[in-house]
C-alpha cells in the first residue's frame, strides 16, 4: 500500500525545551493512526510541524510523495492535509454554514457549489440543526464538530484530529468513534491525538507513543497497553493510568 505520510527525524526546540525530538513514523493510505502520550509530550507540536504552523529545526515530512516542510499551512491544506485545533478555533462571527463554506471554497470557488458541499459536511458531523447559528454561540463540543466539518469541506486525503473527544461523555464518545470510523471507511487517512483509551482502541490499528518529545513505543493497541515503558511514562508524569484514562 502507498504511504500517505512519512515523518523522518522531526525535531523542534522552543528555546531550551526540546518539544519534539527525532520523531519518525509513517502511515499508509487509508490507515488510522493514534498519536498518544502524556500532556506536554509534543503531540500538538507534531501536528503544528506537519501542517506547517511551525517550522521544524530538522527533519522531513513527505505527504503523498511530496516533501512538505517549508510549505505554508494553506499550501499543505491544498495538498490534502486538514487539521483541527486542540482548542477549537471557529470563525466566531460567521454562521456554521459560512464557516464550513470557507473550507469548501478551497476546491471550488462557486458559492452554490461550496454551499452544497458545506451542507453535506455539516450533515455528516450532525450539525444540520445549527447551520445558521453563529459559531460563537455553539457549545464547545459543537465547535469541535464544526471544526471537523470545516476541515472535511476542504476534501482532505489526510485528516489530523487533535483531541476532538476531550470532555465528551461516553455516549458522545461512541458517536465520535462512529464518525471517525465512517471517515476511515471512505478511505480517508487519519491521525488522531486522543487520551480516551477506549476510543483509541476502537479506531486505531496502529499507535505511536510520545513522551518528552520522543517516540517511546509504536505498535498495535494490544502491544502498547502491555508496554512497560508506556505505562511508566503515563504514571511517571503523574498521569492517570492509560488503561483507566477512558473512564475519567
Amino acid at each position: 500500500m502507498a504511504e500517505a505520510l512519512v515523518v523522518r527525524n522531526l525535531s523542534k526546540r522552543f528555546g531550551g525545551l526540546r518539544a519534539v525530538q527525532n520523531l519518525s513514523f509513517s502511515i499508509n493510505e487509508g490507515e488510522t493512526v493514534a498519536l498518544i502520550g502524556p500532556n506536554g509530550a509534543g503531540k500538538t507540536t507534531s501536528f503544528h510541524l506537519i501542517t506547517g504552523f511551525h517550522r521544524p529545526d530538522e527533519g522531513s515530512v513527505t505527504a503523498f510523495g511530496r516533501e512538505i516542510v517549508g510549505l505554508r499551512p494553506h499550501d499543505i491544506c491544498a495538498h490534502g492535509l486538514a487539521r483541527t485545533f486542540q482548542v477549537a478555533r471557529p470563525f466566531g462571527g460567521m454562521t456554521v454554514l459560512a464557516n464550513v463554506m470557507t473550507g469548501a471554497f478551497l476546491r471550488d470557488k462557486r458559492p452554490e457549489v461550496a454551499c452544497a458541499k458545506a451542507y453535506e459536511a455539516i450533515e455528516f458531523v450532525g450539525l444540520s440543526a445549527k447551520a445558521h447559528t453563529p459559531a460563537r454561540d455553539l457549545t464547545t463540543i459543537d465547535q469541535r464538530r464544526l471544526e471537523m466539518a470545516r476541515a472535511l469541506a476542504t476534501e482532505p486525503r489526510l485528516l489530523l484530529l487533535d483531541e476532538v473527544m476531550a470532555g465528551l461523555n461516553p455516549s458522545e464518545i461512541d458517536q465520535a468513534v462512529a464518525l471517525v470510523g465512517k471517515l476511515s471507511k471512505r478511505g480517508l487517512t487519519i491521525i488522531i491525538v486522543e487520551h480516551v483509551m477506549r476510543a483509541i482502541m476502537a479506531v486505531a490499528r496502529h499507535i505511536v507513543v510520545l513522551d518528552h518529545g520522543q517516540k517511546i513505543a509504536e505498535g498495535g493497541p494490544k502491544e502498547i497497553v502491555k508496554n512497560q515503558e508506556v505505562v511508566r511514562a503515563y504514571l511517571g508524569s503523574g498521569y492517570v493510568h492509560v488503561a483507566t484514562a477512558g473512564e475519567t
Binding site: 504552523f53 491544506c77 491544498a78 485545533f85 478555533r89 471557529p90 470563525f91 478551497l106
Partner: peptide, 11 residues
Amino acid sequence: EDEDAAEAVGV
C-alpha cells in the same frame, strides 16, 4: 476572525 484557522482551511 482568525488568520491561523483560515490558513488551516486553505486560505
